[in-house]
């Protein structure tokens, strides 16, 4: 059982199913690289916000949110390394811009 899990929320129609599988693999690989977790043990789930139900800055949103939970916590340096690598991976695979992604890594 991994001490890290991810919940990813995306705007409906923004990220195709085959891309999600690559993003999940990417999250697991980044987590393995940064935290040493076994990739296959890292849970990743995806959910969609239906069109017309998500807003950012008062306008319809195209932003994806990646929420990581880390049991036991990590240092801030490690957290920032993890979040930055997730950002880079997510933008490369999904094609989104840096302004269309929010990443968090919470201690639990």
């Amino acid at each position: 059982m991994s001490r890290v899990s991810y919940s990813c929320t995306m705007q409906e129609g923004q990220v195709a199913d085959d891309v999600r599988a690559k993003l999940a693999d990417g999250l697991r690989q980044v987590t393995a690289d940064v935290l040493g977790e076994a990739p296959d043990d890292v849970p990743v789930d995806f959910s969609d916000i239906p069109t017309g139900f998500g807003f950012r800055g008062g306008e319809p949103s195209t932003t994806s949110l990646v929420r990581g939970s880390i049991v036991g916590g990590v240092t801030q340096d490690v957290r920032e390394d993890l979040m930055r690598r997730i950002c880079d991976m997510w933008m490369e695979i999904s094609g989104c811009t840096v302004d269309e992604l929010v990443v968090s890594a919470r201690d639990t």
């Binding site: 930055r84 840096v98 929010v102 968090s104």
Partner: peptide, 13 residues
């Protein structure tokens, strides 16, 4: 509420 430092947005913590 949560610590600001736990979130990266626009590529910045």
């Amino acid at each position: 509420e949560g610590p600001a430092s736990w979130t990266m947005e626009g590529g910045m913590v």
